[in-house]
Write a protein that binds this DNA or RNA. Structure first.
Lengths: 219, 219
DNA sequence: TGGTCATATGACTGTCTGGTCATATTATAG
DNA sequence: CTATAATATGACCAGACAGTCATATGACCA
C-alpha cells in the first residue's frame, strides 16, 4: 500500500510518476524493471520512491491494483447486456470489453498481461486470487451456459473454460497484430479506435467459432 | 554455436552441464538465468563455460536448438497420419505430439515456452523465424482445410490460425493442471504417462470443440 | 624425461541492482 | 520570525551479474 505521502502529492507529479512506473513495468518484467530508471525518467531522487512505497513489490502491486480498477470500471461503464441473452452473446460483450481495456490502457494492460504470464519472484495472495478470479468467472459462465442448454451437454466444462480463457487472454494481441498496430508505439501516441467495423467482425467471427466451431456443417 | 572443446567433452560431463543449463533456463527467463548458478550446480569453474560457448546468448540459443531438434524428432518418430484424412484428425495428431513433447522433455519444453512468451533482450533472426514457422505451419494447414472443404468457407483464415495456435500453445499446461501434475516436480521425477485414456479424451474433446464449437446444435 | 597443446580454474573487473539514511529543503503553524 | 513537521535528496552499501585472463593442470607424443 502506498503511503499517505504519496496521496498528498500534487496530482500532476503523482500522475507523472505513475505513468513512468507503468512504462517501466510494461517494458520489463518484474525482476528487470528498474527503480533507478523510473526515477531517472521522471526526474526525482531515488529516495523519494521509498517515501511513497515500502519497496518495489509494493509499487508493483499498486500498479496491478490500478489495472484491476480500470478494467472493472470499463466493465461497469459498458452497460451489461440483457441477462436473458445467450451465453455466446454475453461472451461477445465480455471479449469486447476486455479488448477495449487493452486499447484504452495499453501500457497498463501490458503490465497486467506480464503479471499473468511472466515470473513474479514473490508470493502474493492477492495476485493469486486475481488469477483465479478470471478463471472462476468464466467457469461460472460455462456452468450457466450448460444449465441453459446453450452449451452442448457433452462438453467438458473445464476444457470449455480453458478454451475461452486462453483465447480471451490472447485476443488483444491478435487484434493489435491484425490491425498492424505496434504495441510499443501504442500508448504514447494518439488514441486508437476500437469500435471499428473491422474489429467488430473479429468478435463476431471468434464467437461464431466458439459456438459453431471451424468445421463445415454443410458437407 | 558451441566450440569444438564442448563437443570433445566426455559424454557424461557434457550431459550434466546441459541438464543443469536446461534446469536454470527452465526455472528463470533469459535475463534472470544465472551462469554462476549453473556452474555451481554442476561443479565446474565459471571460466569453463566460456571455453564451451561464446557467451550466455550462445548457450541459450543452443538450448533452443536442442528443443527444436527433440520436438522434430518426436514428430518424425510418430508415424504421420494418413494424408487423406480430415484436417481435424490431422490436428489431433499434431496436438498430441506437441503435448507428448511437453511430457517427455518437460524442462526443455519449459525453456522453449519461455522463449515464445517471455522477453529476450537481444534480437535473433533464427528465433524470430522459429516463431514464424509455427504460425506458418498452422496457416498452411488452415488453407488446406479450407481448400478441402473441411473448414467452413466463411471462416477468416487468420482468425482460425490464431485460435489453433493459442490453444496448442497452452494445451500442455492445461493437461498438466488437469492431471494435477506439478510442473516444477516434473522432469527430475519419474516419467509420466501421456498415453492414458483420460488424456486421449482431452484431445478428442478439444478437436471436437474446434470442429463443432461449444454450442448446442440440438436446440 | 621434456615439450607442446588442450583444457580447467577462480580471483578479479566493471556494471547494475534495490534499498538506506543523514542531511537539506520546503511548507505549515504559532 | 521561529519552531516543527513533512518531504526531497543522492551518496553510499551490500549483493548479484556476465565476462576476462593469468595461471595451473593434465594428456599425449618424442
Amino acid at each position: 500500500m502506498p503511503t499517505q505521502t504519496f496521496f498528498n502529492l500534487p496530482e500532476t507529479k503523482r500522475q507523472a510518476f505513475i505513468q513512468a512506473a507503468i512504462e517501466e513495468f510494461a517494458d520489463n518484467d518484474y525482476a528487470n524493471a528498474s527503480i533507478t530508471r523510473i526515477v531517472a525518467r521522471v526526474g526525482i531522487a531515488k529516495g523519494s520512491v521509498y517515501q511513497y512505497f515500502q519497496d518495489k513489490q509494493d509499487l508493483y502491486l499498486y500498479l496491478l491494483d490500478l489495472a484491476a480498477q480500470e478494467k472493472l470500471a470499463l466493465l461497469r461503464d459498458a452497460r451489461p447486456p440483457d441477462p436473458g441473452m445467450s451465453i455466446f452473446a454475453y461472451l461477445r460483450w465480455l471479449l469486447s470489453t476486455g479488448a477495449q481495456f487493452q486499447l484504452v490502457h495499453p501500457r497498463l494492460a501490458q503490465v497486467a498481461y506480464r503479471a499473468l504470464y511472466g515470473d513474479i519472484p514473490f508470493h502474493d495472495e492477492t495476485l493469486v486470487r486475481m488469477k483465479a478470479a478470471a478463471y472462476a468467472y468464466i467457469g461460472q459462465l460455462v456452468e450457466q451456459g450448460l444449465a441453459r442448454g446453450d452449451i452442448a451437454p457433452d462438453i467438458d466444462p473445464e476444457l470449455a473454460v480453458f478454451v475461452i480463457h486462453s483465447l480471451s487472454m490472447e485476443l488483444g494481441n491478435f487484434i493489435l497484430k491484425r490491425q498492424g498496430i505496434d504495441p510499443a508505439a501504442l500508448g504514447q501516441g494518439h488514441m486508437h479506435m476500437f469500435d471499428t467495423p473491422e474489429i467488430a467482425r473479429i468478435f463476431d467471427q471468434l464467437v461464431r467459432v466458439l459456438e459453431q466451431g471451424l468445421g463445415n456443417r454443410t458437407t
